[in-house]
Design a protein around this nucleic acid. Sequence first.
DNA 1: TTGTGATATTGCAATATCACAATGATAAAA
DNA 2: TTTTATCATTGTGATATTGCAATATCACAA
Lengths: 108, 108
Amino acid sequence: MGFSKKQLFNSTQNQVANYTKVLGHPARVAMIQHISEHKNCNCNELVKSTGLSQPTISQHLVEIRKIGLLKQKVKGKNLFYTIDSDQLNECRRVVNDFFVKTQVNCSK
Amino acid sequence: MGFSKKQLFNSTQNQVANYTKVLGHPARVAMIQHISEHKNCNCNELVKSTGLSQPTISQHLVEIRKIGLLKQKVKGKNLFYTIDSDQLNECRRVVNDFFVKTQVNCSK
DNA sequence: TTGTGATATTGCAATATCACAATGATAAAA
DNA sequence: TTTTATCATTGTGATATTGCAATATCACAA
């Protein structure tokens, strides 16, 4: 069929999947790293640092934005991105929670 | 183009992406949870607990196996699955490392 | 040897993802 | 005003993923 049967799974499972899905592409991992390392970097900088085209970067930014990890500030014709630290933490908490609970179950 | 330009990214970035990609589907999250909660569960049990078909479960198991999270024991005509606790830990370490480093960069 | 049950594999349709060219929108600079 | 720079959006082609029916395989039981 090609679509994912999300309704079969609970909200926590879907949340873990939603967050990790965004990290499931090296370009997005690299982009998040780059933004966190270079405060207020713009789109062009990401294009240069990754070697991907501007539309591709823009698309990946949409995905990262979907899970709330991206903050942006307009300055003239520039858009400066930063990582939303709180949401990154929330994301980390959800994913880590999954790992911890699974690990605990394993060692029972 | 449709293919992922993995060669543009470093091995850590690819590793984070590889691991999280597997978790990027609620069925696999649910399956990993179920296996960890029910020691030595078999394929049929996963079919029942998820509501997906046997071939679909089998395919997802292939993906989970790819990142080394699955151990299996043959008992007659049954195959009993468990989660490889060490690899789960490694996986957690890699992903958490990414989160921690990013978080640290954010608060500089 | 002939089922039977458990799992894997194959083949296919539907959909999603990835990447980019072309185009659009906007704001500063010339 | 025209040009230029930056970024978003749209459209499209290529590839990957998801899900399942059908079939294959394999181990045991009768």
